[in-house]
Amino acid sequence: MSEKTTQKVTLAKALNMGLRKAMEDDAKVLLMGEDVGKLGGVFRITDGLQKDFGEDRVIDSPLAESGIVGTAVGMALRGYKPVVEIQFDGFVYPAYDQIVCQVAKMCFRSQGKTPLPIVIRIPFGGGIGAVEHHSESPEAQFAHTPGLKVVACSNPIDGYWMIQQAIAAPDPVVFLEPKRQYHADKAELDDTATPAPLFTSRVVKQGTDVTVLAYGPTVKTALKAAEAAGNEGRSLEVIDLRTLSPLDMGPVLESVRKTGRVVVSHEAHVNLGMGAELAARITEECFYSLEAPVLRVGGFDTPYPPARIEEEWLPDLDRVLDAVDRTLDF
């Protein structure tokens, strides 16, 4: 057992360390994507990995997302564990057919004979002042697809462990990384700790009055909202969903049975988003515990806006608190 060492790391660094660990542990792990080699990726998540693992394992790809995912399918069929990077959320759509029709269905089509252990890393969400197609939240489109598993990390510690767990998983995993958080906060990483299983949600702040469900970039927003609400004597319980498909409803339902009130927060458009599914499941399972309808705070049903108004468009602390007020006033 290795000696306990802790260090303060950003999400970007934690993901980099997690990828490195996965590549050290399993020679079949390959990284592929645009600019992931010498450059280390546009967000530097794969920084230094090509230098240490070589061009055969950290592969700079031609600029074609369907090609990246489609060749990853072939590599997985050959026994490799490809981890592909989609440079930005809005660029995943050229690969959508390969993801939905091939990656998601190969295990089913082959009656379990050829599962595909592929990880598709996607930096997602907004708040970085980017141009069009660089700030999107496509998670519901993948969570809606049987055969895929979808997770979102929200902090460096989870980033380190979840990427390794996703790579080790036998099924394809769409791995969402909140790009706004890449270089934001540091956390103390103990790489000898025992992580929670990948497909589990976690209560990140206990509370009694309202349950706030969040994932990825909105976890930080929800925690800030909980702090602000606490100053006004309102106790919010915050759950980091972590896994979007499958959903881990246990902690959610337990919380709702306690609070009776739920606000779901995500950056994606609310229409047919994760919040809609959560509201439906909570209503089915906890109808008599609910004191108010499940409220959703998310992106409006518009295209992602120009950067100068994205802060107004995104669900921020005030809009979460507004929803908390509305559910308490119901």
Partner: peptide, 27 residues
């Protein structure tokens, strides 16, 4: 079983398998 005869499953989406073939060859 594709592994028994090295013969992949039929692919109905036109052309999708050419990328799988290329990735397999890279493997």
């Amino acid at each position: 079983d594709p592994r028994e005869n090295n013969f992949g499953l039929y692919t109905i989406v036109i052309g999708a398998q050419t990328l799988h073939a290329t990735g397999y060859a890279m493997g």
